[in-house]
Structures are given as C-alpha cells and as structure tokens.
Design a protein around this nucleic acid. Structure first.
Lengths: 115, 115
DNA sequence: TCCTTTGTTCAAAAGATATTGAACTATTGA
DNA sequence: TCAATAGTTCAATATCTTTTGAACAAAGGA
C-alpha cells in the first residue's frame, strides 16, 4: 500500500503555507520537528479525535509538508525537510524555530471584530 | 481615521501563515515586497474586484502582515517587515524570495482527488 | 457646490474546510 | 482463528472563507 504524495515539483508555496496556517497542523509539524524521527498518528491523539487527526495528516501529506509511510497497521509520518529546504529556503526553519505564545491566539478575534 | 491593526505581540504565526496561504494575498505581498514602497489598493486591481481586494487587504492587515495608512481618499499599504522579521526570523525573506511556477498551482488538485 | 476618485460596508450566495460518529480495512499478536 | 490495534473512509453537519453587487462615505478637484 502506497499513499499519494505530490512530487517535489508539485509542491507549491501557497499550498504549504495554507497547510501550515492551521493550529492543529502547525502543532503536528512542530512535534515532528522536535522529535526529529518519524512518528505514528497516535502521537497526535491529544490534538484531536482519531478521525480529525487523520484528516489533518492527509492535508499535510497532500500539500507536500509530510511524508507518510505505511508500516504494517501503522504509519510513519515525517517532515519533507530536505525538499522543502530546497524549494523554499529558510521557511521550515523559520516556522519550526518560532515559539508561539498563548496570548497570541486569543487576541486576534478581537481585532477582526473591532472593524 | 485610523484602521485597527494588531500590536506586535498580538501577531501570531498561525494567523500570518493562514493570511499568506492564499494566492491573491501572496501576490499582494510579493507586489509590495518587489515595490519596496507603500502602495494603494488600486495597484492590486488586476488581482480581483475592488470589493474583493478590500477584503484581502483587510485580512492581511488584521493578521499583522501589512500596515494600512489612510492618506486622504486613498490608503498606503506596506509590509510590516521589521516586526515580522523580529517575530519570525527568515519567514518573510523565504516567502518573498521564492518563485512560484504556474504548474504548481494546477497539479495539486489531482493529488487530493487521487485518494 | 457637484462630481469624481478611492475605498469601505453590508447582505447574500457560493465554496471550501473542519469536525463528528459509525462503519470499515488491514495487520498483528494471542 | 479471533480479537485487538491503527488508521481510513463516508456522510452529515457545522463553520469559516471567499466572492459578488449595491449602497455608502470621505476627500479633492473643477
């Protein structure tokens, strides 16, 4: 069994940014980056329901951010760092290396509402 | 008249990435980066209707990507590069410095459909 | 003053994304 | 073989985002 992934030249910046621009998926990407080794879906259980994580992991895979390899009844998910680094130098380093504070998430709604 | 902008500490990476993860907004950001000087809304007329550009510029402003200053009946839109550079080092350089090819936009749908 | 330019706001519609539970498949270990 | 484990798929719903046109507002020039 082989899951569909975009080839390197099919990876677009817009799609990568859209994939990363979601709190759940950004958390997944950071977990993967911190771990440095492939992880299975269960690792992300605290971030949502099994179905929901499956959905977000598919988004990451389809955008080219992650590689998902089937290993028995489980999957090994990893970041496509080399390819992303070649396509968009500095992007993943920047996304991974940046801390996100709790306050930032809550304040943005009030700004949009303030129009 | 003063438009609402997030303060530096209210800018979150998730929101910035979500703002950049749209073709129209990425084109706006690149135009601003290339020009290097503030531009008014009319500059982006070819990217969509007046109403639509107004909508996307509001998104960019509310996420903290751009600064919009009122100047008479017109606006001067610029990138908040210094602040973004401090918050997310390398991010904007990476996003701005990367070419997007036409082929990349068209191929991704086929991958998602291929599941 | 009146008209033009520049852009916003609003409400509606269309479209895309996210979330859920139930049913399912495939692998593995007992 | 049977049951447990790990994930996926599906259909439904909910929610958010994008797009549109019509109406509006504010400034500036004739």
């Amino acid at each position: 069994m082989k899951l569909p992934h975009p080839s390197t030249d099919q990876i677009s910046l817009t799609n990568v940014l859209a994939a990363l621009g979601d709190p759940t998926r950004l958390a997944i990407v950071r977990t993967l980056a911190t771990a440095g080794v492939p992880m299975n879906c269960g690792t992300f259980a605290e971030l949502g329901s099994k179905t929901n994580i499956s959905y977000h992991l598919a988004k990451l895979r389809e955008s080219g951010v992650t590689l998902t390899e089937v290993s028995g009844t489980s999957r090994k998910v990893s970041l496509r760092l080399e390819e992303l680094g070649r396509l968009f130098p500095g992007l993943m380093e920047s996304v991974i290396g940046t801390e996100e504070t709790a306050s930032q998430h809550e304040t943005r709604q009030s700004i949009a509402a303030d129009r």
